[in-house]
């Protein structure tokens, strides 16, 4: 049967993309970030996931406010590399897992009664691609895992609650567990951590909040899931509401999952966090 073998919480800062594309990952300002992912990729090579479910937000690459879904699940066999206004990165298209997506859609909508927008076509952008670059680097032949995008509205209020995102993660765990094939899955919760990109508070960071969030995510996710958008925005910056997607990842791994890696680096305008769970 399907099995969630790990969960990763990580930032998807867009400036990481060009750094990867231009081979700048060993520059002094960037090396601390990229070094942190070396043990993560070694760990992933050991647990051998076949599919990554990537929980992220579309930053106006494929969705506009004409129709902006609260939760959107990719159900396609492949996903194109999107252009979000800065050009199309030279990356191979993403291979999906339409069978698993279909099973997830049925389970989430019928058994767990979540309301999903189902996407037969979805162009993926930095929210999805930066985590893939960091955890599952591509080769000329493509990406080493199949991937399923799960896009969450965290940019136009009203957003789903943190608790709803956590429950979605728990439902995802159940849905993967009932999949009749022995597919190993990793769930990635992306975005954050503290940051604000507008107004006089542009550049706001709060490492204390971010470290607390990492503590709670590991030890007390149910309590953390009660955090409100107001609380996140006040303490961590308006754009930090992306952190509710980390709760989807946390809900998808076992309550007693072992935390394996933890890292934090905040050079510019985002607290770049990293946390991994096994089992």
């Amino acid at each position: 049967m399907g099995r969630i073998v790990g969960g990763i919480g990580l930032s998807h800062v867009p400036s990481i993309g060009p750094v990867v594309d231009r081979g700048r990952t060993q520059e002094p300002a960037w090396k601390p970030l990229f070094d942190a992912y070396v043990p993560v990729r070694e760990w992933l090579a050991g647990i051998k996931p076949e599919v990554a479910i990537v929980v992220y937000n579309d930053h106006g690459a494929d969705f506009t406010f004409d129709k902006y879904p609260t939760f959107a699940l990719g159900v396609a066999e492949r996903y194109a590399i999107g252009d979000e206004g800065f050009g199309t990165r030279p990356l191979p298209e993403v291979t999906g897992d339409a069978e698993l997506s279909t099973h997830l859609a049925h389970s989430l909508i019928h058994e767990h009664e979540f309301d999903l927008t189902l996407c037969q076509e979805l162009a993926v952008e930095h929210g999805f691609l930066v985590p893939m670059n960091l955890c599952f680097p591509h080769t000329a032949g493509g990406w080493p895992v199949r991937a399923i995008p799960l896009a969450v509205n965290v940019i136009e209020h009203p957003l789903p609650t943190a608790r709803r995102c956590y429950r979605l993660g728990q439902a995802l765990r159940d849905a993967v567990s009932s999949y009749p094939q022995d597919t190993k899955v990793v769930v990635m919760g992306t975005g954050g951590m503290s940051h604000q990109l507008q107004g006089r508070r542009f550049g706001y960071l709060n490492e204390k909040f971010d470290q607390w969030f990492l503590d709670q995510l590991e030890a007390e996710p149910e309590g953390l899931a009660r955090i409100t958008h107001q609380e996140i925005m006040e303490q961590a910056g308006a754009e930090a509401v992306e952190l509710i997607m980390w709760l989807t990842m946390r809900g998808a791994v076992a309550r007693q999952a072992r935390r394996v890696h933890r890292h934090y680096y905040a050079p510019m305008t985002t607290g770049m966090g990293l946390i991994t769970f096994e089992g």
Partner: peptide, 11 residues
């Protein structure tokens, strides 16, 4: 979830 304005911030 949204209880009031936040200083130097647009929601």
């Amino acid at each position: 979830q949204l209880t009031g304005p936040i200083k130097d911030t647009t929601v």
